[in-house]
Design a binder for these strands. Structure first.
Lengths: 229, 229
DNA sequence: AAGTTAACATGATTTTAATCACTTTTCTTA
DNA sequence: TAAGAAAAGTGATTAAAATCATGTTAACTT
């Protein structure tokens, strides 16, 4: 699946470092990391890891987007998170010691660095700032997921789409949101047909614009309103 | 709200210690903890803390049950977790540095010890085993919540009730499940009326038995089946 | 123990969103 | 660049669960 292995991305100069947990490593640690990690290109729809398998390390996303999802009853995906450059993916399972509960798959071409379990734990042990960032990250995400559970249980699909689009705006920044309708539906937690119909409504209401599959948000304020609080 | 302050529960001899994160503290640390924590009785429906406020420490549950919940759109509660003796409540917000995203309220008479922020962080810093347990706990919970999100998004209310009852069985052990219909509905994520109707169905199918508000599970295997996987 | 309140329960109705069946558009790649 | 495949979109129908209205039982309170 993997196109090419390369060693030419430097951690010290990684353009995603500043929004990454590795930003608090000192230059010695960064150099060491650079020696001990492997980097790979992945094309679209490649897996980083699969639900049920055991983690052997973590993945640091340099370029591209990765969807993290579980599979429910009839194999339907529920997208839990969409990772953007700088993010470390898959450390949860490694820290808990369990097999992955989620799968990770690229949704565009990606450059990803692999940091082995040993290396990762070494960094956790030796650098308390890094460790605290990991702990903070876990805690923050845990809080966010409590909100997601509530949203899933209580909000209508329309409200959830508004919430979801706002989250995706944070992830995609100024670029248009570039997800398949099916992925978008699996992120919002609805049927693809329902999602398409709602997108059309939002479009008619002037809230969004679509360029074939791409979605551009025109009125964030309106989405906030629709999202309810 | 608090009936009585007491100092007579010893951490070293706490009957809930063995299923608690404090079990890996050494005797010196336990003695120190004992000097620096305050214990209180709470009656039913008392708050430990409220969504939006800032954490000043964590709560260690010695006796009783506590519901942890968020409030959705129209103030409807979504119960995220029901804590049982031994559990430390409210450390997530303390670790992330944010205000509480959830509220915690007793659902029966409780004995609760309070450990200050300073004290808690001191233990985290000095005892790596304790710290690792905290990290593992956070990670495990994070995984569980990914599953909850998927369940909320994809399972029917009937399936979710089956899942919920099985979870409650783990929490209540051999005792009957003792929750109001409303709390049970807010745990499963449905309307109270719907919950009541489904409980009746389960009762007619011989899966559960009810004693006024209490629920006794008769056929766990059947619930596993209904829960879907 | 009687009265009051809150929790539990049921029936009828409406709403939301899933499902099924099918068409059209867009992307791939031979 | 034409053919095939995959993704996007539409319409009709069904199913699930929320909501509204109201009745009943249980549990406090004085």
């Amino acid at each position: 699946m993997l196109i090419k292995t390369y060693k030419n991305i430097s951690c010290s100069n990684c353009q995603s470092k500043s929004h990454s947990l590795i930003e608090n490593l000192n230059s010695e640690e960064l150099n060491n990391l650079e020696q001990n990690r492997g980097c790979s290109f992945y094309k679209k729809s490649d897996y980083l890891f699969l639900e049920g398998s055991y983690p052997r390390g973590v993945y640091c996303l340099n370029h591209g987007k990765v969807k993290v999802f579980t599979r429910g009853n009839e194999g339907k995906e529920q997208i839990i998170h969409i990772a953007k450059p700088g993010e470390i993916i898959g450390f949860r399972a490694m820290l808990s010691g369990d097999p992955y509960l989620v799968s990770a798959e690229t949704i565009e071409e990606c450059a990803v660095c692999f940091i082995s379990k040993d290396e990762f734990f070494k960094m956790m042990d030796s650098n308390s700032e890094f460790r605290n960032d990991i702990i903070k990250g876990l805690s923050k995400e845990l809080g966010e997921r409590a909100v997601s559970i509530t949203d899933m249980a209580q909000k209508s699909v329309r409200e959830r789409l508004a919430v979801g689009l706002l989250q995706l705006k944070e992830i995609y920044g100024t670029e248009p949101i570039n997800l398949s309708r099916e992925d978008l539906a699996n992120f919002v937690g609805t049927a693809t047909e329902t999602l398409i119909r709602l997108l059309k409504e939002f479009k008619n209401e002037g809230i969004i614009e679509t360029q074939t599959r791409k979605v551009i948000i025109l009125k964030s304020d309106k989405l906030h309103q629709l999202a309810g609080k």
